Simulated scan of single mutants.
Amino acid sequence: MPVRTSYVAFATPTLTVAGKLNTMANAPGPTPGVVICHGSDGVDGRGEFHAAALNAAGVATLEIDMWAARGSARGAAARPRSPVETLPDAFAAKAFLAAQPEVDGGRIGIMGFSWGGVVTLLAAAQATQGLSGDTPGFRGHVALYPVCWAYEQVPGLSLADLTGAPVLIQTGDADAYDDPDGLDQLMARLPPASRAVIRGVTHPGAGHGFDRDLPAQTIVDPFAHKGQGGPVLMEFHPKAARRARELTVAFFEEALGA
Rank of each mutant, 00 (worst) to 15 (best):
G133P: 04
H225V: 00
A78H: 15
R107G: 03
V232T: 08
A188C: 11
L97E: 09
D161K: 14
G133S: 06
L54M: 11
V147P: 02
V201H: 08
F251L: 02
L233Q: 11
G205V: 04
R242W: 00
A241N: 01
I110C: 08
P28L: 14
F251G: 00
P222G: 10
I108K: 02
T163E: 04
P136L: 01
G164P: 07
T202A: 07
F138H: 04
P28V: 12
N26Y: 03
D161T: 12
A206H: 01
M24T: 08
L247Q: 15
V118G: 06
G19P: 04
L159M: 13
V3C: 02
G29F: 12
A57P: 08
I36F: 10
F49R: 06
T202L: 05
D178F: 08
T86H: 12
F49W: 05
S72R: 15
I36E: 00
P166K: 09
D179N: 09
E253G: 15
G33F: 11
Y151N: 10
F138K: 03
V118P: 02
L21K: 09
L21N: 11
D134T: 13
A176M: 14
R79E: 13
E253F: 03
Y145I: 03
L15Q: 13
N55D: 13
A255K: 05
A160K: 08
F113S: 00
V84E: 14
T61P: 03
Y177R: 02
G109A: 12
F96Q: 09
F91W: 12
H237L: 00
T128W: 14
F91G: 02
